[in-house]
Design a protein around this nucleic acid. Sequence first.
DNA 1: ATGGTTGATCGTCAA
Length: 267
Amino acid sequence: MPFTIATWNINSVRLRLPIVETFLRRFEPDILCLQETKCPNDLFPHAAFEAIGYPHVAIHGQKGYHGVATISKLPFDDVVRQDFCAVGDARHLSVRVEAGEKRIRIHNLYVPAGGDEPDPAVNPKFRHKLDFLEEMRAMRASGEPGVSSILVGDLNIAPFEADVWSHKQLLKVVSHTPVETEGMIRVITEGGWADLMRHAIPVPEKLYTWWSYRAKDWDAADKGRRLDHVWGSGDLVADLRGIEVLREARGWERPSDHVPVIARFDL
DNA sequence: ATGGTTGATCGTCAA
């Protein structure tokens, strides 16, 4: 059976509810994982999602910052909210679904951006990001017997040269420094994950999911980075039918600086 | 080298 999952850093779910609804109506993913919802739990717009066919919603929000939400057509159970680095940030949410022949744990993650200065000794935000990455090493693609895994989200790291507009110019820019890119590749390798975006669209093809708000003409300048990711347990590689990065969404009305990534499977 | 933009919230932080 077809199974589709999307991930999108929405940068305020309430402000951008209209374009989220447009996206869901047009692409009809079974599951949408949102990051940076910036929405306290008691103000989350549940009714809007239920009204367009998404009655199953898990949220992990806080006031002002961060926040993740998993919005689903399919029922799920065993919701887990992990407090990475024990700082009380709402940055992780996982659920377990049954789709086709498979049971799948879906992790929805929002990794700290890490601030501007890529030195953990002087920048506590970068220290936090590296600590978060270290804690991610415990995430295993085969964590539960008989359960496949998908990990999506804004991981705020672009691991490969083809994931940034200029490898040389970004080597000392947070998101593409060696300690981050090597750390991420270690998490992928040790955890038994497959980088599904790069299975479908291999290096060296350039692939971006984020363009800064600060760039004057994001489309023409095209100074993007691949900060959003879709990882899966090894068994899902054979089931993957394609990846779509919805670049056009960066040009929508009042856009997020991130665009949706859609993964399609036949399970 | 610097400043550039956006959102939540209401001066300032986070990204």
